[in-house]
């Protein structure tokens, strides 16, 4: 009997149209791909606790978690809102040589996944999605604590300073103290993020350090703020996608925390009713808040893997 080897997680920086994109990956290097999109204001680091279970549960799969532009260790990209991130993802997966994939999106990553899935149906009008003429094809969609509905999106886009960990954003924005205050700003970020974890979830200081890394310099906060603002000014695109949720016939799974302070189960229920390809049941994770990947990583991995293993 072979001795099980620890899951190898590869970290690499790719060049995508002249800008670095940071990618964490595990599993094989070919075969169907599972793409994990993080949300605000995190990075592919968010998925680290799920990666080993996913690799084990999905032999033969490529598991890829990129840092969205302007997050984690990826370079910013002008105008990187939901309107453009679908095209960005297509370019990234083409570069990686992926030909078919399942897409998981959490928070902002969920909005990107959802709007991209709609754009891929070709029903939106305007410039056709590049995947209409070939390249990586989306086969299954998984949504985790996210939204596409205007009320929370506009609040986030217009009033980021009321939402942790952005509550201190306006202060930080002033940039008082310059680089000397980097550590304070990182501490502020961690304090805000901690509020979004379920009681009892432990994230070690070294783990926080990787999350908080971009949020010392003012530039990191500026990027997060720009990303939030993009939600507001790209609202017309998002609303068009919202109107076309009824075209989403691809198999879709909704995985939701029982207690997400931003996107309550009501959002999952609306999506379930709006998306024809959605499963009849929402998968509710107990004991999880906004980041189930931190609170209940094994459960998140299990629910993702089961959906991909089911024959359809």
């Amino acid at each position: 009997m072979p001795i099980p080897s620890p899951t190898v997680i590869t970290a690499a920086t790719l060049d995508l149209r002249g800008r670095p994109v940071f990618v964490r990956s595990t599993g094989t290097t070919d075969g169907p791909a599972l793409i994990l999109l993080h949300g605000l204001p995190t990075s592919s680091w968010l998925w680290r606790r799920c990666l080993p279970d996913l690799a084990e549960a999905l032999p033969g799969w490529r598991i890829i978690a990129p840092d969205l532009p302007g997050y984690g260790r990826s370079a910013p990209r002008p105008g990187a809102g939901p309107r453009h991130l679908g095209g960005w993802l297509h370019a990234l997966l083409t570069t990686l040589g992926v030909d078919r994939f399942a897409l998981v999106g959490h928070d902002l990553g969920g909005l990107v996944a959802l709007t991209d899935a709609v754009a891929r149906t070709g029903r939106l009008g305007g410039t056709p999605h590049p995947a209409r003429t070939g390249g990586p094809q989306l086969e299954r969609l998984l949504l985790l604590n996210t939204t596409i509905y205007p009320a929370p999106l506009l609040v986030l886009g217009l009033l980021p300073s009321i939402v942790p960990p952005f509550a201190d954003l306006s202060l930080v924005w002033l940039g008082r103290g310059g680089a000397a205050r980097d550590d304070d700003r990182r501490k502020g970020y961690v304090v805000g993020m901690r509020q979004l974890l379920a009681p009892g979830t432990v994230v070690e200081a070294v783990e926080w350090a990787e999350y908080a890394r971009p949020y010392g310099p003012i530039a990191g906060w500026r990027e997060a703020r720009r990303s939030l603002r993009a939600l507001a000014w790209q609202a017309p695109f998002v609303l068009r996608c919202l109107a076309h949720l009824g075209d989403l016939t691809l198999p879709t799974r909704l995985i939701w925390s029982r207690h997400d302070p931003f996107f309550p189960l009501a959002v999952a229920e609306r999506l379930r009713r709006a998306i024809p390809g959605a499963e009849p049941m929402i998968h509710i994770i107990e004991g999880a808040a906004h980041f189930p990947q931190e609170d209940q990583p094994a459960e998140v991995a299990r629910l993702i893997a089961e959906f991909l293993r089911e024959p359809r």
């Binding site: 309550p264 189960l265 009501a266 959002v267 229920e269 609306r270």
Partner: peptide, 8 residues
């Protein structure tokens, strides 16, 4: 209302 929204 808090969990399932005002239209539940």
């Amino acid at each position: 209302r808090d969990t399932w929204g005002p239209d539940a």
